[in-house]
Design a protein around this nucleic acid. Structure first.
Length: 1104
RNA sequence: GGGCGCGUAGCUCAAUGGCUAGAGCGCUCGCCUUACACGCGAGAGGUUCCCGGUUCGAGACCGGGCGCGCCCACCA
């Protein structure tokens, strides 16, 4: 929606407030304010102020967004919260560093770029040279890094933009190489042959988290494997003789078999055993027997393993229900089978090529008659295997079975567990896992029993908010496995390892010259090279290196291939050593983020960069999403502590952050996570465009409760008329998810559009049906709040301005003594003081919604609804009240600035302009400290002395407020026109009470006067408490019937209250056991209600 | 399978075991009151998912269900 120009004339025209329009139009101010902030350098942190001047530090590293795409509202939420923390602490006087940056996001980015190139140019990655392709990805990165930075800036994020980082920039890359080298040298990185999640399409290993589970309608195949004793078939009668249960049920001279159940028959080619549970009654009779794989002819053992599930057709567990008790073991193609194979020393037979076709070129030799499967794809082979088994009477059954299968989150191909050589990081080592576990504060630790080491820096100092997430962190470490860190990609940090064979040592004309080895060893001694061979460190001379060959090479890790190691690299490569083609898992560089961004391992050359790490690590808080607690938070803890260890890992170094705040996940209105595939994401810039950054930030802050998910109903914006409306939805047949219907009709202009919410396949935008954008009307509340604040400030300025024009002496510097003030002023100051206190408490516990709510109530209810309305008649002539008004506004601007930085900064400019115009700082309230500062973003956080909290003023105000409410209710019930000034006929006590308010009751209730005279005919009765008063001077005749109805309702309610209170007091348990003050309170309430009831009844009786 | 969160007004959410369970949006009525109609005033609207228990007192705590959702692991 586009905002139109203001319609309201400003009465204060010609003064410093004169050019304030009736609405705050964000687009008119945001760019200019951002420029002012940038130019001021307010967000640039200086380590020297921490290290030499002893200033308290507050630091955060941004969770670097992936450069794959623009930011969505989930990012907006997290970054708003971080900015709030940064701004609050900056105002509180902390030297504040918020380090911005982005993540290269290895496979994700490479894949989006590959897909775009394929779509636009029809080329594949393999059509490019490695460097040329990387250049294309780099171009994408540049585009999205710029877009993301722009989004963050438009949101108002107060990052230290001079220090912006990227996980692959030289500063971070240097840290990655150094980290890899140190881990390699320490034996914490090793080469391992393991099963990985292999994506046969992209031909890369995927991390577990890069695998998505998808439900598949498959089949359970029951395959018969003939039993053999040595080379001879075993008959059922022989089996019966061994005591095999039910063997007699088969023809005695027929060859016996066992039946295995599998969803993947094609993997039988790689079977190297059949397992049975030792508790199975059949197990004993099979001792020493083998099975012979059909066609292949391979004879494989039957092993006993507890892992095998016993069959139970009645079981609700689908495994037991479908099981036969015999499990085919394929160590090369199933992770569990791999484990079983390890336990029983079974052969590992890989029957597939990297593209997942059946192949005898990758570790399979005894092909036998199974040759007919060679070259088939997995899917083709499956059908063929089933057909061949069936043809031989070996297919017992095939049952339909729905199960979930891992798929590549990028290519969507089914994952093949695949045996391959990979680099691993030994995170299970005490120096990594142990350090990370012991970082957590003792009271949040549960499972890990290793004690924190007394006196060790960082041990037991890391705290989770909300605390429950500590549990997730801990339990993950219990089941930790070594981390596969290599990826078969081009986009990423290339692994700094070269492989060498004995030929490297026999280079040139020389035959195994010790001089060559000496040369390598010299580099090792210099700490520039580290060597591993056969899984062990070879950093000492090992004659057997000479035997290394292509199949079993030795590995040379170069500390700094681009710098000091250049000479080594040249030497290695000129002698035939080849660099590893793989790159590191993205999370490897992410794990270094808190130290790499701050310059580790180099101290930095200039004053600016030197000592950043010393000054700002550990950071104060990390704000992130819960699903990466394990992938990221834990690894940062490991690396920060390991690499900052002062004794190479003997003693853990400092933790990466003191607090870990886990923010909620933003879901759409149907409880679904915002995602690209659902199309329910919302671009923060769309919200900024329609509502402004402040409105977006305020609502996001207000939404952030301590639950784990928050819902944001997504609306559709009409591309024709800008109207925002709730989309008509449907359940998608394929996913079962709720999505918008493909074509939506605008309820305002009746034109049609194509909704992006739900990514409707086959519906593309046309001129008649343009694409709509997503938005949410939830942000209206934030925009309204901003306008309210704006107008409150406008009112304030107008009143102060008038005083100047009239030559008042209002603004003489000097303290206003709160004790000398009127009730309403004391009340307002008390509310401010309490808000300051309450915000501190909320923020200390990361309760952001409380902070927003406190400000909402302070501004809208206390300040606007009551204070401003109450002071209207008096403020123009009261210098002290003007001082209170101005100080209140300034306090509010400061307290609100971290949430809504733009509008508050603009208003701060106006307040300062006004002060300049008035020629001085103006009167201030004693006990309320507000420093003078050019920009609000670097102004001081307000502090209020405890003396400003005035309980007496608050309770007196509550009394007066309830009188005002009673009068307003009576007016409405009797249809008295809002502007009609009326007369209150009150008794002496009430008159006195109202007098303490110095006119505010009259103002707020619209009273012309208050008198003790008896009310004339035609008045309406006003019951306040148990005393009866009246209102007269109404324009129209009193509706007696309406008054009777009102009284009857009142009586019914009071009767119920009295009953409840009596019931409570008649309960002996309550009177005896509840705290005495509560019982007394209840007694008081009862007598109060009883007299009110009596008064109301009497009045109703009198009306007849 | 393990862990976690949630279920309160039509919607989105509040409520240290203690006043009559509150707010915003939406709805109804009255107001263009000279800061603000993105506003002001007054209202309507509740079986706090169900069943038990603890307690003088439960929306909250305990046990058992039902439902929704998220994360992790696994899937012969």
């Amino acid at each position: 929606m586009t905002q139109t120009a203001e319609t309201t004339q400003n009465p204060g025209s010609g003064t410093p407030s004169g050019d304030l329009p009736a609405k705050f139009l964000p687009a008119d101010h945001e760019p200019r304010i951002r420029t002012r902030w940038d130019e001021s350098g307010a967000f640039h942190a200086g380590p020297a102020r921490v290290l030499s001047e002893g200033k308290r530090r507050f630091s955060m590293v941004i969770p670097p967004p992936n450069v794959t795409a623009r930011l969505h509202l989930g990012h907006a939420l997290n970054n708003t919260l971080q900015d709030i923390l940064a701004r609050v602490h900056r105002m509180k006087g902390y030297e504040t560093l918020w380090m911005p940056g982005t993540d290269h996001a290895g496979i994700a980015t490479q894949t989006v770029v590959e897909q775009r190139i394929l779509k636009e140019e029809g080329k594949r990655r393999t059509d490019f040279e490695r460097d040329a392709f990387i250049a294309r990805v780099q171009a994408w990165k540049d585009e999205y890094e710029a877009a993301i930075s722009d989004q963050l800036r438009q949101m108002g994020c107060s990052c230290d933009w001079d220090r912006q980082r990227f996980t692959m920039d030289e500063i971070c890359a240097r840290a990655v190489r150094e980290a890899f080298f140190r881990l390699f040298k320490a034996g914490l990185i090793y080469r391992g042959k393991r099963l990985v999640n292999w994506d046969p399409v992209t031909q890369t290993a995927l991390a577990d988290d890069e695998v998505e589970m998808e439900e598949i309608e498959g089949k359970f195949y029951y395959l018969r494997y003939p039993l053999v004793d040595g080379a001879q078939p075993v008959t059922w009668s022989q089996l019966a003789a061994r005591g095999y249960p039910d063997a007699g049920a088969h023809p005695s001279d027929e060859a016996a078999w066992v039946t295995v159940a599998t969803t993947r028959p094609e993997t039988y080619l790689g079977d190297s055993g059949v397992a049975i549970n030792p508790k199975d009654a059949r197990a004993a009779a099979l001792g020493g027997l083998h099975v012979c794989l059909p066609l292949v002819g391979r004879v494989i053992p039957i092993v006993e393993d507890e892992y095998v599930v016993m069959p139970d057709p009645e079981s609700s567990d689908s495994k037991a229900k479908f099981a036969t008790g015999f499990l085919k073991v394929t160590p090369a193609h199933d992770p569990n089978d791999w484990e079983i194979g390890q336990r029983h020393q079974l052969n590992v037979i890989n029957v597939m090529a990297p593209d997942a076709s059946i192949s005898d070129q990758h570790g399979w030799e005894d092909v036998g008659d199974a040759r007919l499967f060679i070259g088939l794809s997995r899917e083709e082979a499956r059908g063929k295997v089933v057909a061949e088994f069936q043809a031989r009477g070996l297919l017992e059954d095939a049952k339909p079975y729905t199960h979930s299968v891992g798929h590549s989150y990028r290519s969507h191909a089914a994952i093949e567990p695949y045996l391959s050589d990979q680099w691993y990081c030994k995170v299970t080592d005490e120096r990594l896992r142990g350090f990370a576990q012991r970082a957590v504060v003792p009271e949040q630790r549960t499972s890990d029993t290793s004690p924190a080491r007394a006196g060790v820096e960082g041990d037991g100092a890391m705290r989770f908010f909300p605390a429950r997430y500590a549990q997730m962190y801990e339990s993950w470490h219990d089941n930790l496995r070594d981390w596969c860190i290599s990826r078969q990609l081009w986009w990423g940090h290339r692994i700094p390892v070269w492989r060498g064979t004995g030929d490297l040592l026999r280079s040139g004309d020389l035959k195994l010259l010790s001089a060559v080895t000496d040369r390598l060893m010299a580099w090792v001694e210099q700490g520039e090279l580290s060597i591993q061979y056969k899984g062990e460190a070879a950093d000492i001379e090992r004659p057997d290196l000479e035997e290394a060959d292509e199949l079993s090479p030795f590995f040379l890790c170069v500390r700094d291939p681009n710098g000091t190691g250049r000479e080594i690299v040249e030497y290695l490569e000129s002698n035939g050593a080849k660099r590893d083609d793989d790159v590191l898992d993205t999370w490897f560089s992410s794990a270094l983020w808190p130290i790499s961004t701050m310059g580790w391992p180099e101290p930095g050359q200039s004053d600016e960069t030197r000592n950043v790490l010393e000054a700002f690590n550990p950071t104060s808080v990390l704000s992130t999403a819960r699903e990466i607690i394990t992938l990221w938070v834990s690894r940062m803890a490991m690396f920060n502590r390991f690499f900052r260890s002062e004794d190479a890992g003997e003693t853990p170094g400092p933790i990466p952050f003191e607090h870990v705040y886990i923010h909620p996940v933003v879901q759409d209105g149907h409880g679904q996570r915002m995602s690209k595939s659902l199309g329910n994401g919302v671009d923060p810039l769309d919200i900024i465009h329609s509502h402004g950054a402040d409105a977006m930030r305020f609502v996001l802050c207000q939404m952030t409760t301590t639950t784990q998910d928050v819902r944001l109903p997504v609306d559709v914006v009409c591309p024709h008329c800008g109207h925002t409306f709730e989309a008509k939805t449907m359940v998608a047949p394929d996913s079962g998810r709720t999505v918008a219907e493909p074509v939506q009709t605008c309820p305002s202009c009746s034109k049609e559009m194509v909704s992006t919410y739900g990514l409707n396949k086959g519906h593309s935008a046309t001129d008649d049906q343009p694409a709509s954008r997503n938005s949410s009307s939830k942000f209206d509340a934030g925009r309204n709040f901003g306008t309210k604040l704006w107008n409150a400030a406008r009112f304030t300025m107008m009143n102060l301005t008038w005083a100047i024009e009239e030559g008042d002496t209002t603004l003489e510097p000097g303290d206003v003594d709160p004790r000398s003030l009127s009730l309403i002023d004391r009340w307002m100051l008390s509310r401010l003081a309490r808000a300051i206190e309450s915000i501190d408490t909320s923020l200390a516990e990361y309760r952001f919604s409380e902070y927003a709510q406190t400000m909402y109530e302070l501004v809208w209810w206390d300040f606007c609804d009551w204070y401003l309305e109450a002071v209207k008649p008096t403020v123009k002539t009261s210098p002290t009240q003007q001082a209170v008004l101005r100080c209140s506004l300034e306090t509010i601007l400061r307290l609100l600035h971290p949430i809504t930085p733009f509008v508050t900064e603009v208003l701060h400019e106006r307040v300062r302009a006004f002060r300049a115009h008035a020629g001085g700082p103006g009167a201030s309230v004693s006990g309320l400290d507000l420093d003078d500062c050019d920009l609000l973003c670097s102004a001081g956080w307000p502090s209020a002395e405890q003396t400003l909290v005035d309980a007496e003023a608050e309770s007196r105000f509550e009394q007066l407020r309830s009188i005002v409410s009673a009068i307003r209710e009576a007016r409405t019930a009797s249809n008295v026109h809002p502007r009609q000034q009326i007369t209150l006929h009150a008794d002496a006590p009430l008159t006195e009470l109202i007098a303490t308010g110095e006119g505010i009751v009259e103002t707020l209730a619209g009273l012309e006067r208050i008198t003790t005279e008896p009310a004339p005919d035609g008045s309406i009765t006003l019951l306040i408490g148990a005393s009866e008063h009246a209102l007269s001077g109404l324009a129209d005749a009193v509706d007696t019937e309406a008054e009777k109805t009102r009284l009857a309702e009142q009586i019914a309610k009071l009767t119920k209250d009295v009953e409840n209170l009596e019931k409570r007091l008649n309960n002996p348990g309550y009177v005896n056991k509840a705290p005495a003050h509560l019982v007394d309170e209840t007694r008081g309430q009862l007598s109060q209600k009883q007299s009110e009831l009596q008064a109301a009844s009497a009045k109703l009786g009198a009306l007849g």
